[in-house]
Amino acid sequence: MSNETFIPISGNEVKVYFQNQFQKIKADDINRLSGANPDNSNIPAILAAILATIGRSLDTAIGFKVTNSGAASISIEPGLIIRLDAIFRFPGVTLVPSSGSLEGIFEIELEEALTDLNTLAFWDSTSERFQPGTGPTRKAYRVNLYEKWVNTPGLPSITNSRLGLLSYKRSVIDGPLTEIKRLLPVYNPGLIGIDVSLDPGILNQDSLADSINWLFQHIEQKNFLKTTSSTGFDDTQIRFRTQGAYAFWSKDEVNWYPFA
């Protein structure tokens, strides 16, 4: 007969709210259903499952592609930021850096706010009747956009609690844009991965597809063959060239020898 031992672990539960029959309903109970109150709501579990399908478990940005960058403006495609408790939507925008700027950054702030005030009926415990009043009817998950710029060299730092979106530089104040970089790490499900780091010399690519393309271009441009090291023989790079019907080889591209 085998033995069994219970092993306690933490973080192994997904709890959702349970309403008993004939139990009084409170505002928090309804807000759990909509996701406005993420505690014991099924919304975080659904978002976690969505992130898991693309191999992610943390906050993830998707989209935000920089396109149609001109000398004076920057276009950014729409994007989403998926957290474990909410989704934030960023619309496509065209940005024009502020006049007088030399360098700068655009950053985003993720804000939660109660909005859409409306006339509602509230229970008055004194009169024991419903009385009219004003209150919010929606909880908004909003993306706010800011620009920080300077007129001297040196990019501004990203504000605490905000996310860097992109940076830009000019060679002179109010001159054409000379450098644009996206600061926000973005996951692209269509390109299989993010921040892939491979050796040798592939550096950090945005995706596995970019790394494969880098390898293809590297092989296409390769202009030598490397010999196999063994006792008594050279380990070197050999290049070839032809002249008419003859072929020659070289170790240094200076001295060329015909094949024996």
Rank of each mutant, 00 (worst) to 15 (best):
T134G: 10
T134N: 14
T137E: 10
T137L: 13
T137Y: 11
R138E: 07
R138D: 12
A140N: 09
A140D: 07
Y141Q: 00
Y141E: 02
Y141L: 00
Y141P: 05
R142Y: 05
R142G: 00
V143W: 06
V143I: 12
N144E: 14
N144M: 13
N144T: 06
L145V: 12
L145E: 07
Y146T: 03
Y146V: 03
Y146E: 05
K148H: 07
K148V: 03
K148T: 00
W149M: 05
W149N: 14
W149Q: 11
W149H: 15
V150A: 09
V150C: 06
V150D: 06
V150Q: 07
N151M: 07
N151P: 08
N151L: 06
N151I: 08
T152D: 05
T152E: 13
P153T: 04
P153C: 14
P153S: 10
G154K: 15
G154Q: 12
L155C: 00
L155T: 02
L155V: 09
P156S: 06
S157H: 04
S157N: 13
S157M: 13
I158A: 15
T159I: 04
T159P: 12
N160T: 15
S161E: 12
S161I: 12
S161C: 11
S161R: 13
R162K: 15
R162S: 09
R162C: 14
R162F: 09
L163D: 03
L163M: 15
L165A: 06
L165C: 11
L165N: 03
L166T: 01
L166V: 01
S167A: 11
K169R: 09
S171N: 13
S171P: 00
S171D: 14
S171F: 03
V172P: 02
V172K: 04
I173G: 02
D174R: 03
D174V: 00
G175A: 00
G175N: 01
P176M: 09
P176E: 06
P176F: 01
P176R: 01
P176Q: 05
L177G: 06
L177K: 04
T178P: 06
T178L: 02
E179H: 09
E179C: 00
E179D: 15
E179N: 01
I180S: 01
I180C: 00
K181Y: 08
K181L: 10
R182P: 07
R182C: 04
R182G: 04
L183I: 13
L183D: 07
L184E: 06
L184Q: 08
